[in-house]
Nucleic acid binder design. Structure first.
Lengths: 108, 108
DNA sequence: TAATCATATCAAATTTATTTGATTGATGCA
DNA sequence: TGCATCAATCAAATAAATTTGATATGATTA
């Protein structure tokens, strides 16, 4: 499979909102408590929408909006689990993002 | 000197605008043509405002606004050179930014 | 000093992003 | 089927970011 082009501006924008940053931290910590079937993608377990709502104390449509932004930026994967939806951090894409920045800005 | 705290959300926001991303790429390429005294910070040469305006074809106040955003995010340094102002990419801070993301998101 | 040049700042206009509450659609279960 | 649950979408409201043109500041030069 050919690597998708990394849109660094788009990913940076996804990470530039405090709510989404918190969500990413949560996803990275592999927490999952409320959903019956823990998911696994790239060796990581995921979170469902309901748990994110609970942890952040935010209403459903707000969480849904931000999850969509993260998915569209390509740094979060989603997978339906019955009427739930599990979200997973896309480690590979984030690594590519960092590599791209490293190359663009000539870092070490 | 103690390392300044890295505000990843703030830096991501700075990088999330296409104009600023272009500017960062330009700064990373060490170009400098129009200014009499090339600057040097962290081993990099810099760019003056006027050259950024010319390269991007943008008016002065617009460039000034974006440079301020980059400086306030901590990823660009500025240094007056007479009536010009030179800008430098802050490689160290960008490296710290990447390291922070790597740790936050448990990347390799 | 006066004029010029480079940049900063400001207010207004515009555009884009975020939040909310309501509604819809889809799934699972009684 | 009918009901309950979870998530997506929509429209409206709000907030934040960006752009522009005008003006101000500060340095250089004639």
């Amino acid at each position: 499979m050919i690597n998708a082009m990394i849109d660094t501006v788009k990913i940076a924008k996804a990470l530039s909102d405090p709510v989404r940053h918190k969500i990413m931290l949560m996803l990275a910590q592999n927490n999952q408590e409320c959903c019956p079937v823990p998911g696994e993608v790239e060796g990581k377990t995921g979170l469902c929408n309901c748990e994110i709502m609970a942890k952040l104390g935010m209403i459903q449509s707000r969480v849904s909006y931000h999850m969509k932004e993260l998915v569209e930026a390509g740094i979060v994967a989603e997978e339906p689990r019955g009427k739930w939806k599990m979200y997973f951090i896309k480690t590979k894409t984030l690594n590519q993002f960092l590599e791209q920045l490293r190359a663009d800005f000539k870092l070490d």
